[in-house]
């Protein structure tokens, strides 16, 4: 980005544009997921027993397992950022690697979960709950995919050593995004897995 090198020459304030851009981006994302969850909650409140019957068939243990995976990946992401801050390149690379692996693990578990649910006959057409389940986790899953791709590209740069000295701040931006996706899941997990 042009940000790190040229901006300092003429910038009037000390806020880094990249960081602020990410925050505005997350603000718009909050409204997308916030709106989505509001729609979901309104439907949940307006419907009765049939919903509980449908929602009873998701697997809370698998969901819990995935929650732990994602929370751990957030921790390793912070560790990667911390290592960047402390100029520990090897450590930063390792933590980025773990974050990417955990992201892929989340997607793998999710894929297993989808296939076992579809095998049992629960598709997006099996009622409003299931339609929401696939729409919400699907949109969240796409965000995870995007995050994994972004993190993996940083990992490749870190392994080649090209991440430094100009682009290491991107780990912070990737981290902000990754934590956001994680927080979305923290809302999704109780609303979807514990809503019966």
């Amino acid at each position: 980005m042009s940000g790190a090198t040229t901006v300092s020459e003429y910038q009037a304030t000390h806020t880094v544009p990249g960081r602020m851009g990410i925050w505005w981006f997350l603000a718009s994302e909050i409204m997308v997921f916030g709106g989505f969850l509001a729609i979901y909650i309104l439907y949940r409140m307006a419907s009765g027993g049939a919903w509980a019957e449908m929602a009873n068939h998701v697997s809370a243990p698998i969901g819990t397992f995935n929650t732990i995976i994602l929370l751990t990946s957030s921790l390793t992401m912070v560790k990667a950022f911390e290592a960047i801050d402390n100029e520990k390149r090897k450590q930063a690379t390792n933590f980025l690697l773990i974050t990417v692996i955990l992201g892929l693990a989340f997607l793998g578990v999710k894929a297993f979960e989808y296939s076992s649910e579809i095998a049992l006959g629960f598709t997006p057409l099996s009622g409003t709950f299931w339609a929401f389940y696939y729409a919400l986790t699907g949109l969240h899953g796409l965000h995870i995919v995007a995050g994994v791709i972004f993190n993996a590209s940083l990992l490749v740069m870190a392994m080649k050593g090209t991440l430094w000295p100009n682009t290491q701040h991107r780990v912070e931006y990737a981290g902000l995004y990754w934590h956001f996706v994680d927080i979305v899941w923290i809302f999704l997990f109780p609303l979807l897995y514990l809503s019966y």
Binding site: W24, A27, S28, E29, I30, M31, V32, F33, G34, G35, F36, A38, I39, A135, L139
Partner: peptide
């Protein structure tokens, strides 16, 4: 714009 369009994006997906 940023704060109003999100819910409609969710709605458009649906």
């Amino acid at each position: 714009f940023m704060l109003s369009v999100g819910p409609l994006i969710a709605g458009a997906i649906l």
